[in-house]
Design a protein around this nucleic acid. Structure first.
Lengths: 219, 219
DNA sequence: ATATTTTTTATATAGATGTTTTAAACAAGA
DNA sequence: TCTTGTTTAAAACATCTATATAAAAAATAT
């Protein structure tokens, strides 16, 4: 979608502020001041603050899902074998994340914060807006992922997916803070690509772990 | 700490609202209305809204850390062998989470949301308040955990810990939403103990996964 | 019982919030 | 030139925000 210069300035400023402060903590006046546009511009272009939030979600979620779906298509066409390792699949996710980021440093943190927000009880509208539209694009990916996971029930797979999602959402939405802590504790500051790379074996291991059938009572 | 009846009503109401809506989305008027106390009561008993947030953090973080430390002590005394499996250690965490919950359904979600909040850039005061005090209590636990993890550098362990933390924080702070989704998709509603139990093998697998040394570029 | 302290109440304050309005300007196309 | 879509400016909107104050009430002490 082609957007006006003002609308893009608003989006850029909003992303940075959202990623640093969160959504409800960020005010329209902060956004328009940072974007150097008039206060009324947000309501003009996006209808409301919630409309702006939905706009940024659309801006990142669609390319993200498309990238993954494209990667799946390419992978399946290059080789007839239907087994794709979860390592490969996770790498697709990480590449997709880096891709949607573009040059914007704050984009990834905001994207993940948005995912987090969508799971809030009060944000069912946003959640349905985000998922019901893009869920289809990820179906093949999820099926491949499941094929290389430990055998389990549907709902167990559901929960494991959200365990992994939690790792990504938490780590990336709080990335700046974590980098700062790492800096102060280990005097080392690692780039985001490295962190994403480090997540891959952890996440795949989580998927392939044998589910423990023993009952949760060893008192 | 012995608390007045009013203060306890406030805490209980605040926990429920915080867990459902988040912190800045919850107003003093909502809290005091739900607690059926006067608006000024929060400022009287806790000084400010931030003071109330710190009070709930203190209320849950201290017992949580104590429980884990006690469990470590008991485990080390019962057997001279110094190797404790990460499965056992993770189970300690899950038990500690269930313990601090008490009868309050929302307590766990709020506790996890608090942990999430503490990693926000603007909440460095809360973060230091929460961690610098309780970090010591978890030292032995973390050392044992590291002993049963895949060999890795200090900063890699740091990141992996936060990957796992993310799983817990995300899953539990959004527990009510996830339960609702599970209900609608699988017509199944699993209790929190089961979910915590399902996390154990996933988390330990993440810690024991062999770190991938290959460079992140297979283009 | 009286004095003192603690707690609760009702009300006020000062400011921030998202949103709307009115006005005027600007650009581009028909 | 008339029209249409943008953008700015400034102000006002109604509502909500956390917090402060001061009097009333209750509890506790002497």
């Amino acid at each position: 979608m082609q957007r006006s210069k003002t609308a893009n300035q608003i989006l850029k400023a909003a992303e940075a502020l959202f990623s640093e402060q969160g959504f409800s903590e960020t005010t329209m006046r902060q956004i328009t001041a940072a974007a150097d546009v008039n206060l009324a511009a947000v309501n003009y272009h996006f209808g409301s603050k919630q409309g702006l939030i939905q706009a940024v979600s659309e801006k990142y979620l669609t390319p993200f899902c498309d990238y993954i779906d494209d990667a799946v298509t390419e992978r399946l066409s290059s080789q007839s074998g239907v087994t794709v390792t979860s390592d490969e699949l996770m790498e697709m996710v990480m590449r997709a994340l880096l891709e949607v980021r573009h040059d914007n440093t704050h984009a990834l943190s905001m994207f993940m914060r948005l995912l987090d927000l969508s799971y809030m009880k009060s944000q069912s509208v946003l959640r349905e807006y985000m998922f019901l539209q893009h869920h289809v694009k990820l179906e093949r990916f999820l099926e491949l992922l499941r094929n290389d996971s430990s055998p389990m029930e549907d709902d167990e797979f559901f929960w494991r997916l959200h365990f992994l999602m939690g790792s990504m959402v938490f780590t990336l939405s709080n990335f700046h803070t974590l980098i700062a802590i790492e800096k102060s504790e280990f005097d080392k500051e690692v780039e985001i690509e490295k962190v994403l790379h480090r997540m891959i074996p952890v996440l795949t291991a989580g998927l392939q772990a044998r589910s423990d059938k023993t009952f949760f009572c060893r008192l």
